[in-house]
Nucleic acid binder design. Structure first.
Length: 713
RNA sequence: GGCGCGAUAGCUCAGCCGGUUAGAGCGUAUGAUUCAUAAUCAUAAGGUCGGGAGUUCAAGUCUCCCUCGCGCUACCA
């Protein structure tokens, strides 16, 4: 066991609110883990913060006619508030726009630079002459080479999902000015990842660095190891760590050529974990360094699966290249949570927003947390449904847990005026753990101890679903304890045995008030006050309890007075669920009609003169043959008869049309488009297609029977 | 296209290095019970472990091929 823990949760990007996918992916598991560690008396710091840099934020600011600062301020506050409301117990929620973060990132850069970890490379990048700046990939739009979407971004086409580089775009234009950008040389710093490949491979797969074992790879998740090895096997390439941007951390000014350069967000974001730790240390008058530099610290990154490579390969390489820093002992990445059968999507507004949930289900934060754990995508993608949410709440939280607590409270008040009865611990009764099994007071307490140990072991292995299930089994056994012994029947004839049973039942509830704390912090607190026990401080409370239980000692002493009974959870009626489902569908429809009505009509491009148009040569043609391009998902290789000649044209329509249904089609061809080589084949033109609101494609065709090769104008 | 991860009862998922009749929770059915938010407890039914082939005395568990889902990545391994 390590001496201390540093737990990080992925920095959320400050350009939108938090949804349940984020919660289930990184924040809830990390919170459960950290609360558990604290309950066990371990030394732990839990850091997170807003990731506030990068082109996407400046793009958003531009679109909304505001500044990047205003955007990040808004979402930083919102995220911070949401985390607090849903009970994510960060020791610090920091932000990457903070001065200390800029300084920390720059220091990192300086050291890496001094260590010779960078190779400087000058490449040709797009530059907007009218605005006078280099363009981030996101700032460049153009026609997608794969699907012909005229508004693809420089890094990705949002219609066909292709990953692009700005050089792939046909007719690129600047999003800042609309003008055509020009290529200009620009220098960037590339991290020599190739230099780190060998030790990374060994570290990932054996846990060893320089012969020293740092972690147990068997404790890492399959999909994490798999993805890392997939990258390692392909060979790591130097990776640019700087960008030409106007919103981010400056490359240290004393470094030659740094003017106008910013650190790549993926470099400064993980360093945000470090600067957050530093700020926490300042705030609490502590030293941050042992948390990052002492080998007796366990560093654990909680992330979603989209971040695996960065946290398992690139950031460790950066830490090692810098020197003096420890490496993560585990990166328990979760997979993705789906919502009602579809992927969560911020842009399509297909999500359950956590801040909205907190507003609409005030006081029921734990119900969402419980559901998120039940559906946590630990090994594979999982799914959240409102119906499931309701069933889980009503069946497990209300019927089982809250009801158990309530029966114990009510019976104790009824029989003993709320006083925990004094008991004869030798008296036999029926155990709640197994039908027809005799129970003995101290042994039953030891069983609780065993169950809690098991739960803890699962938490430490990041099996949160399993851990929660084990905790809930205590409630089940408690219900069975009452059921088997039937105190309401025997209280008159055998009051002494009933005292033992009821005392034990109170112990069960008290155990739950601690055991459930990591998962359901609000309800656990309510349980404490219901039991009239001191509030948990998350400072070894569980450890203390385990030490008592293992000795067969009670957790609540005889003659202790319980508080008043109250319902821990309430039933959620159909109407409430239906309202949420309707809301989801409404946003979906609003989105659809939105697209149909306005958004889809892309603005008409700049006016051109007839001469410009005259340059374009469009011809009628007929597709003679078609075949899928090997190794390509989207391209069809078409042979097109233009009358005077036959052209080979590649068209990104393979996902819309099969080769068979395309043959014989009469089409319209842009005939004097410069040839372009794609996937090893030269494309000699472009087939014209229309696109509807859903991105569906349709051929533009002349009247049937029209002769091939005729000009269109 | 390549690589990775996944595909197990109606639903959500466990099943480590291959080994007796494949497990849990929810749902369903039947019974018991009434202290409790018509809650609880017990019992039972339900699976050719995505499809196919192979290795083995023995495969959900190993190998190969295929199908589907998700992710990463692409002039490419």
């Amino acid at each position: 066991m390590k001496k201390r823990y540093l737990v990080t949760a992925a920095l959320p990007y400050a350009n939108g609110p938090l949804h349940i996918g984020h919660l289930a992916g990184a924040y809830l598991p990390s919170d459960i883990y950290v609360r558990y560690l604290r309950l066990m008396g371990r030394e732990v710091v839990f850091v997170c913060g807003s990731d506030e840099h990068g082109a996407a934020i400046t793009v958003k600011a531009r679109k909304e006619g505001t500044t990047p600062r205003a955007i990040v301020d808004k979402y930083h506050e919102m995220l911070k508030d949401t985390f607090e409301k849903i009970g994510i117990s960060f020791d610090i929620y920091h932000r990457t726009s903070a001065l200390i973060h800029h300084q920390t990132s720059q220091d990192f850069f300086r050291t890496l630079n001094a260590n010779g970890e960078f190779v400087e490379e000058t490449t040709e990048q797009y530059y907007d002459e009218t605005v006078g700046q280099f363009l981030a990939d996101r700032y460049i739009v153009g026609t997608c080479p794969v699907c012909a979407n005229p508004d693809a971004y420089g890094d990705q086409c949002e219609r066909c999902g292709s990953t692009l580089s700005p050089n792939d775009l046909i007719e690129p234009r600047s999003m800042l000015s609309g003008s055509a950008p020009v290529k200009r040389p620009t220098k960037h710093w590339f991290l020599r990842l190739d230099k780190h490949e060998n030790w990374l491979r060994e570290w990932i797969n054996t846990g060893k660095v320089d012969g020293k074992t740092l972690h147990d790879p068997a404790a890492w998740k399959n999909h994490v190891l798999g993805q890392c090895n997939s990258w390692l096997d392909q060979g790591l390439q130097p990776r640019a760590m700087t960008r030409d941007l106007d919103w981010g951390v400056d490359v240290p000014p004393e470094i030659p050529g740094s003017e106008g350069k910013k650190l790549y967000v993926w470099l400064d974001a993980p360093i945000g974990y470090i600067s957050a730790t530093k700020q926490w240390a300042i705030d609490h008058n502590k030293n941050w360094e042992p948390y990052w530099k002492d080998e007796d610290t366990a560093l654990i990154h909680f992330i979603g699966k989209d971040n695996i490579v960065f946290h398992c390969l690139i950031f460790p390489a950066i830490l090692k290249a810098h020197g003096g820093f420890i490496l993560p002992v585990n990166v328990p990445a979760n997979q993705f949570l789906n919502l009602e059968g579809r992927k969560l999507s911020t842009s399509k507004n297909w999500a359950v927003w956590v801040h909205e949930y907190c507003a609409e289900f005030a006081g029921q934060e734990d119900v969402l947390r419980y559901n998120m754990v039940k559906k946590m995508p630990e090994q594979a993608d999982s799914e959240f449904t409102w119906k499931g949410f309701q069933e889980t709440n009503n069946n497990e939280l209300v019927n089982n847990l809250a009801n158990f607590v309530n029966r114990v409270m009510v019976l104790t008040h009824k029989y003993y005026d709320g006083l925990v009865p004094v008991v004869d611990t030798e008296r036999a009764f029926k155990s709640g753990w197994e039908a027809d099994k005799a129970g003995q007071y101290n042994e039953e307490l030891a069983l609780l101890h065993a169950k809690l140990n098991e739960m803890g072991a699962q938490v430490e292995r990041f099996n949160f679903r399993e851990a929660l299930q084990l905790a809930m089994e205590i409630s089940g056994a408690g219900n069975a304890l009452l059921q088997f012994n039937e105190p309401w029947k025997t209280v008159k004839d055998d009051p002494e045995t009933v005292k033992v049973v009821m005392n034990l039942a109170v112990q069960y509830v008290a155990v739950l008030s601690v055991a459930l704390r990591p998962f359901l912090p609000f309800s656990a607190a309510r349980l404490r006050s219901m039991l009239n026990l001191p509030a948990l401080e998350e400072a070894g409370d569980l450890l203390d309890m385990l030490n008592e239980l293992v000795e067969g000692n009670p957790v609540v002493q005889p003659r202790h007075t319980l508080g008043a009974p109250a319902h821990l959870f309430s039933r959620i009626p159909d109407e409430v669920i239906q309202a949420q489902i309707d809301k989801l569908k409404a946003t979906e429809q609003a989105q659809a009609s939105d697209e149909g009505a306005t958004v889809n009509f892309t603005p008409v491009k700049d006016t051109i003169q007839f001469d410009d148009f005259a340059k374009i040569d469009i011809r009628t043609g007929t597709i003679l043959s078609a075949e899928k391009v090997a190794k390509s998902k989207k391209l069809l290789k078409l042979s097109v008869d233009l009358g005077f000649e036959t052209r080979t044209i590649l068209s990104g329509i393979a996902e819309h049309f099969s080769p068979e249904e395309v043959v014989g089609k009469e089409v319209v061809v842009l005939a004097n488009l410069a040839p372009r080589v794609m996937m090893g084949t030269e494309s000699q033109g472009m087939i014209l297609l229309a696109e509807d609101a859903e991105g569906k494609l349709g051929f533009v065709s002349p009247e049937s029977g029209w002769q091939a090769g005729m000009s269109v104008g």
